[in-house]
Design a binder for these strands. Structure first.
Length: 518
RNA sequence: GCGGGAGUAGCUCAGCUGAUAGAGCAUCAGCCUUCCAAGCUGAGGGCCGCGGGUUUGAAUCCCGUCUCCCGCUCCA
């Protein structure tokens, strides 16, 4: 089966069993927006718990917050998102390639600069020690002409961007005779502006001052609360603030099911540290986060680190944890050493002193930040796609049989236990209900009496229920039931009174969290 | 946004050389009472993605539009 087929099957499966539906489907859907159904919501909540507890419960110096999606507009100026998220884009009609217009112009300038440098290197050789670069730049006609080209283009581009004049940006590209690196042609579309942040209006007055953004990342909600949390919690460096929440990005191309959505959920932890210790913490958190993924017990070859060569404006080290999705290895989580960029920016823009007094060093400084940021929806998709299995099994009579099973890590499964009366008479249903009533406070149980027992097992396999107990006639005699394992399909007869202990050891989050400690 | 592919029942799909909309699975009710799906009887369920056009007549042909998938591009 091809990867594409597998992916399609997972999408269908997710819909058929109530994990994920397309948003507003009855109205033809809304592009790149999805809803979590009855089982999806359970799985998603379990992933959240696993993450939250691993951060907040297992680290006494990490606390969790829940900041608002709406924030003061200046937050996004300080963070650099207002500038960085406004990309003028242009397509080449022949190669069908898309470029950022500003990048094309930058490349063009770089080329000219390279020419100037060449000119200077040549002159340097010619004049030897007596070479005066400054004078040469000011007097050499070829250098001057090229420098003028650069200055002109830069000025025009700056003015055009300030005036939001996209037609002018296109004209600059045309006038500079910039060609597509792939097709070599200068057959360009118009320049279009893509604002990757959603905006909306706060208040009833519709002027510019009331424009606010839906946050494109949750991190800033942590940074702007740094002082509040540190002071009210009497926290000392190093300490972390964790948060789970929605973020919004108006992606140019939102694709691949829930992998890239316009509305998505992030699980972020910002770890505030002493400057100079960032390398150490970067390594520590790389290891911790990878351990978190591996504890789930899925095939470890599905996970790998991918270090960034190109770093964002605020980072001095960055790596991704990539997961082998059905469409290839893609980013699941990012671990970034963010330096003091964010807090420094907020200090600058807000005018508030955002610093930490370090008793050991006897000095104040802006803390450095080590960020771990994982996409909850991506994690959901990772769990789902790693779990989905189509098995061919041999029946007792030798016939081949197919089953679809979601081998979801037991602690994350939407339903942990199915309770099935072998037949729906002879008091077996009542006995089954009785058992559920003792277990439902600790486990998410599901009762099912319709259809043959085998069929019911398969239905539970399809939604990833790790255990099923069957109430039969023997149960009425000696209070024992059979417990069936989803993955091995093996059954054991156990006492009803032993069920809580057995289940706890297999499906509780505790056992998963304990793996993180060794 | 560009190019390619696709939208028919909850799911997978057939019907596409115009003429009452079908199958398998699933669902519901009943029978059977069985430890690994597909036994029997019956039932419900579709503006054939949406809008327009051609035609006596459109799921089918034409145009537009929306949504999904793949590639390009981007990814804090």
């Amino acid at each position: 089966m091809s990867q594409e087929d597998t992916f399609k099957k997972i999408i269908s499966h997710a819909k058929e069993y109530g994990f994920i539906f397309q948003s507003s489907e009855i109205y033809d859907g809304l592009s790149a927006v999805y809803d979590y159904g009855q089982l999806g919501a359970e799985l998603k909540n379990n992933i959240k718990s696993y993450w939250w507890k691993s951060m907040v419960m297992l680290h006494e110096n990490i606390v969790g917050i829940d900041s608002a999606i709406f924030m003061h507009p200046t937050v996004w100026k300080a963070s650099g998102h207002v500038d960085a998220f406004n990309d003028p884009l242009i397509d080449n009609k022949d190669s069908k390639k898309r470029y950022r217009a500003d990048v094309l112009i930058e490349d063009y300038i770089q080329k000219i600069e390279a020419k100037i440098d060449k000119e200077i290197t040549k002159a340097q050789k010619r004049f030897g020690d007596s070479f005066d670069e400054k004078q040469f730049r000011e007097t050499n006609p070829r250098v001057q002409a090229n420098q003028k080209k650069i200055d002109d283009v830069l000025l025009r581009f700056k003015t055009a961007m300030e005036n939001d004049d996209l037609a002018e940006v296109k004209k600059i590209i045309e006038d500079a005779e910039i060609a597509c690196p792939v097709s070599g042609s200068r057959n360009w579309t118009d320049v279009r502006q893509f604002n990757l942040m959603f905006d909306t209006k706060l208040g009833s007055v519709n002027d510019d001052a009331s424009t606010i953004y839906l946050r494109p990342e949750t991190a800033q909600g942590i940074f702007v609360n740094y002082l509040n949390v540190q002071k009210s919690g009497r926290l000392n460096l190093p300490f972390g603030i964790a948060q789970i929440g929605k973020a919004f990005r108006n992606e140019i191309v939102a694709r691949q099911f829930i992998f890239r959505m316009r509305e998505f959920e992030q699980m972020e932890m910002q770890y505030f540290i002493q400057p100079g210790t960032e390398k150490k913490w970067f390594e520590t958190w790389k290891e911790k986060r990878m351990k978190w993924h591996k504890a789930l017990g899925n095939d470890e070859s599905n996970l790998k680190f991918h270090d960034h060569d190109k770093l964002a404006h605020y980072a001095n080290a960055a790596t991704d944890i990539e997961f082998k999705f059905p469409f290839g290895f893609k980013e699941l989580e990012g671990i970034h050493s963010r330096t003091d960029f964010d807090l420094g920016q907020h200090q600058k823009f807000s005018g508030k002193k955002i610093q930490y007094f370090d008793n050991e060093r006897n000095e104040s400084y802006v803390p450095y930040v080590l960020e771990t940021s994982i996409g909850l929806d991506r994690m959901f998709l990772a769990v789902l796609s790693a779990s989905y299995k189509e098995e061919t099994i041999e029946k007792e009579d030798g016939k081949k049989d197919q089953r679809v099973v979601l081998a979801i890590p037991p602690a994350l499964a939407p339903i942990q236990l199915a309770v099935l009366p072998l037949v729906k008479k002879d008091g077996l249903p009542d006995k089954a209900r009785e058992i559920i009533n003792t277990l439902k406070f600790d486990f998410n149980c599901h009762y099912e009496e319709k259809d043959s027992i085998g069929r019911r097992y398969r239905r539970q396999d399809a939604i990833g229920t790790p255990y099923a107990i069957t109430v039969d006639h023997e149960t009425l005699e000696n209070n024992t039931v059979t417990i069936r394992d989803r993955d091995t399909m093996e059954q054991n007869r156990v006492k009803i009174e032993e069920l809580p202990e057995i289940l706890r050891s297999k499906v509780s989050l505790n056992s998963l969290l304990k793996k993180l400690e060794n």
